[in-house]
Amino acid sequence: MDFRLTDEQNMMIGAARAVGDRFGLEYWRKQDAAKAFPQAYWKAVCDAGLCGAALPVSHGGSGLGMLDLALAVEHLAATGGGSTVGQLFMINPIFGGVSISRFGSEAMRAELLPKIIAGDINCCMALTEPDAGTNTLELKTSATSDGDGWRLNGRKIWITGVESAAKMLVIARTKKLAEASSRTDGLTMFMIDVKREGLSHTPIDKLGTCTLDSSSVFFDNVRIEPHELVGTLHQGWRELLDVLNTERIVTTAGLVGTGELALKLAVQYANDRKVFGDRAIGSYQGLQFPLAQCHAEIEAARLLNYKAATNFDMGLPFGSEANAAKLLAAQAVASVTERAMQTMGGMGYAKEFHVERLWRDCRLFRFAPVSEEMILNYIANHDLRMPRSY
């Protein structure tokens, strides 16, 4: 077991840091205030080759691994973007890139992967539904046969990045539950155009992650063409899990980078701020110990995420590690952003000191893309072999 990074990985980290530093915290503060997609930033990420790090060389990627991608996300987040960076990678090289590269047709890969990798188009994924939520197997959005294609009807909610996306990965039921051989039978993935007759969406006003819109999406007899099928008709559940578990890895990487950034801002403030004489407030253990605890927790999440990514790259099971890393990272970053604000006192509440944005944004990841409670269910059922409670 070797924890040393390769020269190539260190070069990737350097490239990520260079892009992140070029934009910096003020860029993100302004984008957040404007609720604007970070288009210039994402194009710079793609131009640096970071979007395609884990995607195939044959279609413009670097052909590296998920660990390399996690390193890039982590360091981009740590230079200013925070946990939103994980979402940018989630919607594009994961929802778009991984689903297409692993399960799309060769024609789909040739058409879409170069555009995703170059940042010419963005993607999103429509999975969550108002009446299903985490219980994906109960989703009701249906794709019924229509000649050589399908007609899509239903509703999705909390879909990230629809407004800026050209393509949408949709998960629909292509068999009624009553006709399916199991609850997993009859789920199918499709990659469709966002701008299509019968597809509409409305924004959801929300607390944080304001640079990426969240929407309710409606499908009213939307035509799906035969070539838009991703993976295996009716058997998309296991294929979807590959997409969702890699989603966990980039989410965790974004959170780890956020924790690193929040600690850096808190320590800088504590070491500069002097009250009650000439001693910096950072010299008091009442401030030191909570920040040190946060550092230890962030490091634990980082290493477990590296294991998940490495297992993926080696073709080993990685779901348990990916989910547990996400659980630890979300909890640790909630603590560190809260503690950073407390360290800064009133200035932690001011937008000019940036931590409040990190705090608002990271709160989402206690319950998304999968809630703490469902991760704990997964660990209890799959890792501890305890009986299912739901």
Rank of each mutant, 00 (worst) to 15 (best):
D32Q: 03
A70T: 14
G96T: 09
N245S: 13
G236D: 06
L327R: 02
G65M: 13
V217R: 08
D220M: 08
M125T: 03
V85T: 03
A292F: 10
E106P: 12
D148R: 10
A70P: 12
A300I: 04
A334M: 08
C46F: 08
V250L: 14
A325T: 02
Q293R: 14
F312L: 05
E179H: 03
A308I: 11
R279F: 11
N381K: 11
E260T: 14
Q268M: 13
A322L: 05
R223A: 13
D7T: 14
I13G: 11
D120H: 09
L67P: 11
A118Y: 05
G198N: 05
G63M: 04
L76D: 02
S200T: 15
D205G: 07
W150N: 11
I375V: 08
M189W: 02
V57P: 07
E299A: 02
A270M: 03
G86R: 08
L229G: 09
D131G: 05
Q285F: 07
R4D: 15
P56T: 14
F190K: 07
F103E: 07
S101P: 01
G154R: 12
D313R: 12
G208H: 01
H59P: 05
K43C: 14
S58I: 07
W158M: 13
N381L: 02
E163K: 03
S320E: 15
K43W: 12
A324G: 04
Y284K: 11
R360T: 06
L376V: 10
